[in-house]
Amino acid sequence: MDHFIQLVFSGLFVGSFYALVALGYSMVYGIIKLLNFAHGDLYMVGAFAGFTVLSAGAGVLGGGLLALLAVMLVAMAATGGLGVLLERVAYRPLRSAPRLSVLITAVGASFALEYGIAVAFGPNPEVYQMGVSDGTLNVLGARLTYAQLAMTAIAVVLMITLDTLVRRTRTGRAMRAISQDPKACLLMGVNVDRVISRTFFLGSALAGAAGVMAGVYYGKIDFLMGFVIGLKAFTAAVIGGIGNLRGAVLGAVVLGLLESFSVAYIGSEWRDVFAFGFLILFLTVRPTGLLGERVTERV
């Protein structure tokens, strides 16, 4: 039983990382129907932005939770800004272009970000100099570290903040409206461009936050770290019903749990085969994802 609970915890923890990245995927898809392939790389850039801040302010910042939050805020602002820039430079000029062209720009942007970082920081992995406490505690016989708890808590807070933002604010309402009917929004005087920029900012900032969290928790960052998690987040977003925010989180948690259990019972080398195989079977049974159609609200 404690073994079972341990697997659940591992799955939830990994799932919360997937969720932060999947949210950005889903938001952008919901509003402009674009699969932003560079999204995973924004996560990577976030990790490197945090690394730069940490290295520059090593003496000043110290090592507590407050320092972590400060670094995260700077990194979120940086990746958010980068996301807006990306949309402005690479995606906005292509709005009237065939849909696949934009996809290609996104792949191009992904290459440019990855290798831009490789050129700037060198291909060697970098190590975060910020340690997190080693303390652990036992929950129902399973082992949890304080670091894991802190990370999960931060992720949950971020998700709730986003959810509130989308549900309660004017911008959030505009986002939902655009995803429903962009044409009507223009007629109603919504500044579509500005809302799209804000969507990119939010999604990218979340990915950046996840990047810093990964850097702090795992300790190692490299320029290709965004690729695998980008793929997984994409899968999670689709399982949840792409374009649906709560669906993205749900999908991420489901994916995290699935992976955790498949590693234990099938073997880690078959994990991705299992995850993608499940995805294919699942989509043939429920093509719109877990929350794809039931919920009308979309961002």
Binding site: V89, A90, P93, L94, S96, A97, P98, S101, V102, I104, T105, V107, G108, A109, S110, F111, A112, L113, E114, Y115, G116, A118, V119, P123
Partner: peptide
């Protein structure tokens, strides 16, 4: 070296912006 994929990526974006239909 690493520049080549950076240039490759930027070129893709540029081509798509100026000739989105290919």
């Amino acid at each position: 070296e690493n520049w080549r994929y950076l240039i490759f990526g930027l070129l893709l974006i540029a081509v798509m912006i100026f000739r989105p239909q290919g």
